[in-house]
Design a protein around this nucleic acid. Sequence first.
DNA 1: TTGAAAGCGCTAACAG
DNA 2: CTGTTAGCGCTTTCAA
Lengths: 333, 333
Amino acid sequence: MSDSKSIFDIAKKANVSIATVSRVINGQKGYSEKTKQKVMDAVKECGYRPNANAVRLRTCKSFCIGVLVPDITNEFFAKIVRELENFFIGLKYTLIICDSNEDIEKENLQINKLLNLDIDGIIYISGQEQLGNIKKISSIPVVYIDRRPQNANVLIRSDNERGGYLAVRELINDGCKKIIIARDPRNVSTIIERKNGYLRALSESAIPFNADMEVICRPDYDSAKKMIENLISEQGCYFDGIFCTCDMMALGVLNGLTDMQYKVPEDVKIVGFDNISISKFCSPPMTTVSQDTKLIAQNAGRVLLKEIETGVPAQTEIKIPVELKVRKTTSKK
Amino acid sequence: MSDSKSIFDIAKKANVSIATVSRVINGQKGYSEKTKQKVMDAVKECGYRPNANAVRLRTCKSFCIGVLVPDITNEFFAKIVRELENFFIGLKYTLIICDSNEDIEKENLQINKLLNLDIDGIIYISGQEQLGNIKKISSIPVVYIDRRPQNANVLIRSDNERGGYLAVRELINDGCKKIIIARDPRNVSTIIERKNGYLRALSESAIPFNADMEVICRPDYDSAKKMIENLISEQGCYFDGIFCTCDMMALGVLNGLTDMQYKVPEDVKIVGFDNISISKFCSPPMTTVSQDTKLIAQNAGRVLLKEIETGVPAQTEIKIPVELKVRKTTSKK
DNA sequence: TTGAAAGCGCTAACAG
DNA sequence: CTGTTAGCGCTTTCAA
């Protein structure tokens, strides 16, 4: 801990009481312009910075916000974290980033640690269906990002339904007649909504949906590659378009098709979801749906901050627009 | 802040003094087994958790460690962050992750915020040549990861020289006769060492190094792709092997070559560096040098912790072994 | 407009 | 083995 001056030193140097120093520092009313100057000068001269722990103890506020991330090595989540930091950097709150690596036990450890710090609020990104531990022990404000858990009061997330819709409309516009969806097996809100968008685009073009048009697949590269290879070797290539609920799956599908000598986009067109950077760098570059991480983070920060500072429980659900990034896995133009 | 009990409540309930409660909680000596039990029971019953801010104020320790990251969306750095969290999760320290997005101004803001928190130490990942701000204002322990800055006392990093050596030896073993190096323009220690490994592998096989074997290129996909396309259109494909100082460059080179109808690995073999996941998923999968993020993080944590707890300034440099991941951009086997 | 003083929850020195 | 007490640095009430 640095051996910095205390409020007493400033008071002495400025020839005022510590109460006055405190008032000036915190920008309250109740002092003359002259006094203010004296104090400010002393503060500057001493390089004085208030002791954060004393302030926290006294005010019963930690000015800390816990951020729970399921996977910090996932670029999408990392971007949200970055934008959250951008939002809070100028404010007096400190973010405590906690990566759970999708491990419930680890997440519970993290949550307990956060609780010990008496954090003022929590931002929970794409987590479990229920934030069991935290709501039981504490009643601090929680803002959810991405996935809708049970009993969420505040949820910030992309317009997944529209994302799915845009993706599939692009395939339809490009001439696809038989479009399948490769979806993450989890029944989480994000995935369900994306599928709903897929269905809407189909029905809008009067394309019927059959059971053989939905393929369940774990959302990683290897699973998707294997899935597409199995599918084709068993049933042949009975489709000309495929919408994948995330980019990693889309990439596995792309490479699987290429390995089996199918041409993308000539034989099959593909659209992914997330716009992770790998989707720009694969060959051909992937058409995908981009989520606005900055807007997501800003909204989450804004709503949480308001709830913390006003003490009024928020109750809101914010849908952030998505954008279709057209690249080479759909149109050849 | 939660309305939790204080040490007084526990003392009352257990019929002892607050000093005794404190002793038990902190696992010190000086109480009977019976007393201990009484206290523990009361703690449990009340769900008592010590007020972190009171402890910090009283002990003049924040139990916070700042982690400065240049780019949290970079998978390599994100993995180090994850492993740092794994290291500290069971300990009483809290990590404050700060992404600077490679922006000096933002980094300075972050550092000032950290200083206001009276953090106990800093882990500085792959940062600027000089950690100017922090060393000037404060004298807390700093551990550097990856890059060697000026005046570093503690540096943890991969064996970059050996990484470069392994990469190039692989190319040589695969029959390459003319191996060029595409390197990041920055004269940072990591890059210089990787090039030294390249040179050692060449000289070991008595391959002379000429100026036309070194190409400078910014370490991103687009720059690398453009670089390789320009190089070949101007000078032809005068090489049969290329070592790139990072995977993103290697990927740009791979796709550039493929676009120009060269075959990898038949015409040109490529090795990258970092083993980011994209290197597994590109086509063909990239041979690359893998860094052990877990060991890097553990060593950084261990050394910093020791310095914080003993107060003895550390002075050490630890080299973490690297591993060559052979994939399809070199051997066809 | 200002100052004196209480007290946030805790640790540790000292006394017994 | 246990208790009393001072005080960490700050905010805030109350009095002037």
